[in-house]
Design a protein around this nucleic acid. Structure first.
Lengths: 302, 302
DNA sequence: GCCATCACTGTAGGAGCGCTAAATGATCGA
DNA sequence: TCGATCATTTAGCGCTCCTACAGTGATGGC
């Protein structure tokens, strides 16, 4: 009877289009995958792959076999999930992909609690941007993704993925203590026209929000200083050479010489946990999701 | 990921109710099956089997797992069949169970032709009575069963099994050359009242037909001589101490001193080939079925 | 047109798995 | 209580599968 390992290899090759990528995903060397395919060909006495240029293509028979292999592997995974569900223990490896701010501001609390309450759980974290994180969940390489979106460009999820909103992450304007806005209760976007910005690199919430909001208002923001580190940003702010924007999540208390002023309306970046719907039967995933929800720092008053 | 071998072991144990029988069917020692189950328990961290007396019982979790294992194995088998079908060659092992007369009178011709035309085919034959042969096909232990039934007690097949009629096997009355019926063109059942019978052991067509037909006519047949071997039966017949009944299938020419007289109506034992419906996609099975049909000795005139 | 690179394949060798055989444990029937 | 029947445990052997490394053929930059 056909070996499952061979089917996994074929399925991965069919899915990722190359022996190398399949091997990478499976955690093997390309040689191992190649040998598995060769053996599968010998055992089934069927040509499954053909070389094309530097790569390979699957024959029709292989495509078909890969399709049923997918169903078989799904059933096997389902059986494993059912067993784990029946056992009810949160156990095994759980991989989380989170964007940097969440990795810093949300995961430490969640992780320490998970490790305390579920010693059998081996949690791994990868810092990944939201787009890639969702793709990784969809491919099954990661169990949970912590991602964000903006109210005006809501996150679209592939079929089969579910999400729960953990909360919103408001961002404040950081200004030097001597700044004209330092004493205000809140500021509006239009108050910020003409300012020089100290932003973290493109992809940061500062950059994102500036571009989204200011441009919509018809103003091109002046990002004079683009820095990589939060500490650099703070040092510049303290010198009074510009202002910044920073999410509260994962931000420590602002140092002397810098003041955080809430924005009105607050930049509404929403944070979600995303997972494969069927995988939620795994207790490990269920407890992690619930822990993430519980440790969300409720700073509605902050 | 769960190993297929473990699932096969569990499935077999669930199906046959004991480690020993499962091992026998799988072609392993009980030790191997026991070890597989133990490993499956360790890997899934789930209790799957419990000892009960000398045997075992499966837990609920195991029952459920075995059920999905059945679906998985079915898919795997299906995938293999598809590959073989696509390849189109009759190849691999093919197991036939046949009742003794067919094994002697029908299979030799079929086998020699199969071996000639399909060198890749490894045909195995087991002489088995029809009831057991059908059960073996249903369990998947045998691919094709050659069986018979009587017109008044038609063969009932379990779901999923198919059959084709190969032909009818008429039986003649064998009488000594000196017998009063020796010159007749045919004889009727009522002509045979009062005769002493030389029969092969219970289960033979002679015995079966005598009991079925004579008793229906209200006559208890007198089986004076019950022998095991055809040659013995012939020797007795030649001495004129009784008469016999023998199917034409697998019977050689009758020796001097013995005459075959057709019965009217002929005992209508019908011969079928039986197979699992889904397995007919296998070229090996398809060609064997067609060969069996082709080599059926057409003796409508004999 | 040559060489660097990329992708897959082949080979040798070592680690680990899964099987068998034989002994052991547990239970049932006589 | 003894023998028979099932299942399990242990030791050990063979085989499989993986990695490391070398090799082959196609591609593309220069």
């Amino acid at each position: 009877m056909i070996d499952l390992g061979r089917l996994r290899a074929l399925h991965a090759v069919a899915r990722y289009g190359s022996v190398n990528r399949a091997a990478e995903v499976l955690g093997y060397t390309p040689s191992a995958v190649s040998q598995q395919l060769a053996k599968l060909e010998r055992e089934t006495r069927t040509t499954l792959i053909e070389r094309q240029g530097r790569g390979i293509v699957l024959t029709d028979a292989a495509q078909q076999l890969a399709a049923t292999a997918a169903r078989i592997l799904e059933l096997v995974e389902d059986a494993e999930l059912t067993l784990e569900e029946q056992r009810g223990e949160a156990i095994g490896t759980l991989r989380i992909a989170a964007f940097p701010t969440a990795a810093r501001g949300l995961l430490p609390a969640a992780l320490s609690r998970l490790i305390d309450e579920h010693p059998g759980l081996d949690v791994r974290v990868d810092e990944t941007d939201p787009f890639e994180a969702v793709a990784a969940v969809n491919r099954g390489e990661v169990h949970i993704a912590v991602v964000h979106d903006w109210a005006n460009t809501p996150l679209a999820l592939p079929e089969g993925l579910a999400r729960v909103k953990l909360g919103s992450d408001p961002a404040d304007v950081l200004v030097p203590a001597s700044h004209r806005l330092a004493g205000k209760e809140f500021v509006r976007a239009e108050d910020l026209v003409g300012e020089r910005w100290i932003c973290q690199i493109p992809g940061s919430i500062c950059h994102e929000w500036l571009m989204r909001t200011m441009r919509r208002a018809g103003v091109e923001p002046d990002v004079a200083y683009s820095v990589a580190e939060y500490q650099t940003q703070l040092a510049m702010l303290a010198r009074g050479i510009g202002i910044g924007l920073l999410p509260r999540l994962g931000r420590g208390p602002v140092p002397d010489g810098v003041v955080a002023v809430p924005l009105q309306p607050a930049p509404s970046r929403r944070i979600y946990a995303v997972w494969r719907e069927i995988a939620a039967r795994r207790p490990a995933i269920a407890v992690t999701l619930s822990t993430l929800k519980q440790v969300w720092p409720d700073r509605s008053t902050a």
